[in-house]
Write a protein that binds this DNA or RNA. Structure first.
Length: 281
DNA sequence: AATCCACCCTGCAGGC
DNA sequence: TGCCTGCAGGGTGGAT
């Protein structure tokens, strides 16, 4: 369930169950997800204390007291479910094992964290924390949308001369890290930019305006606990609710919330884009 | 460097 | 409790 807001929501949901606690047992049910899992993963996790849970782009990093970090990517369908903890006034019991439960961590304190991923586009790896920036999955990533390195001049410069559509450019994790198919459509709607326009031919002022809009959309989505499409859930089983705030995504044929023109769906680089043909030029 | 697109895998909805 | 197609929030790798 993975764009930046969903991953951040998962991180926040896992933190109380994991941070400061030891992994008492680790069960690894298959040798690979999208790529092979690291050598002796269960052994390298067992007995280790999770010092911190961090997020970089769409990755979660669990820093262990061994000097390694567990790198987690949810792919398209990955979930991290917490059980055996209190949620408000009631206790979340451990569910029966599900098909596609690939990794199960039993935490000190009684919590269980289950990684379930039907499509197996997700990934896990162990990396030395002090060398994580050089990890092959992280090394080329662009700046964090909320970081200081993501600013107007940067984005204008980065997109200068690019012939690819602005939709494709913003999906490129080397340009800015963490946006995905939903939030790019939402950002471009708010910016009034047609997703088909060549990135390098859009006025600098309009490109610059994307920076605060990216932050605005992502902030609102995080605040809402992410988006729950197709039954995806937060770590505690709750549903995010930003999907109710989509202005164009997944709304083909519905009236534009601004002008009433039917929202259009097109395919770009094999993925759906949604936009208002009247408001976005 | 930029761009295109086949591919990885399973599940589900919709049409027949 | 059919069969088939298309679609799904991810990203890589090879070709051009």
């Amino acid at each position: 369930m993975p764009e930046l807001p969903e991953v951040e929501t998962v991180r926040r949901g896992l933190a109380p169950a994991m941070e400061g606690r030891r992994i008492e047992a680790a069960q690894v049910n298959r040798p690979d997800l999208r790529w092979p899992l690291p050598e002796n993963m269960a052994g390298r996790l067992t007995g280790r204390r999770v010092e911190r849970l961090r997020r970089r782009s769409k990755y979660i990093l669990a820093d262990l007291d061994s000097g390694e970090s567990l790198l987690i990517h949810l792919g398209m369908s990955g979930r991290m479910l917490v059980s055996g903890v209190m949620l408000g006034d009631y206790h979340l019991d451990h569910p029966a094992p599900q098909k596609h439960d690939h990794v199960v961590l039993e935490m000190e304190g009684g919590a269980r964290v289950t990684f379930n991923d039907a499509r197996r586009f997700g990934a896990m790896d162990l990396v030395r924390t002090d060398r994580e920036a050089a990890h092959w999955l992280l090394v080329g990533l662009g700046p964090e949308p909320f970081g200081n390195e993501f600013h107007e001049e940067y984005l204008v410069e980065r997109l200068k001369g690019r012939a690819s559509p602005i939709k494709t450019a913003l999906l490129d994790q080397h340009v800015v890290a963490g946006l995905g198919n939903i939030y790019v459509s939402e950002v471009l709607f708010r910016a009034g930019i047609d997703p088909r326009r060549a990135a390098g031919r859009i006025a600098s002022k309009r490109i610059a305006a994307l920076v605060p809009l990216v932050r605005e959309v992502l902030s609102e989505a995080i605040e809402a606990g992410g988006s729950s499409l197709r039954d995806h859930r937060q770590a505690d089983g709750e549903l995010g609710y930003f999907q109710h705030s989509f202005r164009v995504y997944d709304r083909e044929g519905e009236p534009c919330p601004v002008c009433g023109t039917p929202i259009r769906r097109i395919v770009q680089s094999g993925r759906s884009s949604y936009f208002c043909p009247q408001c976005q030029k």
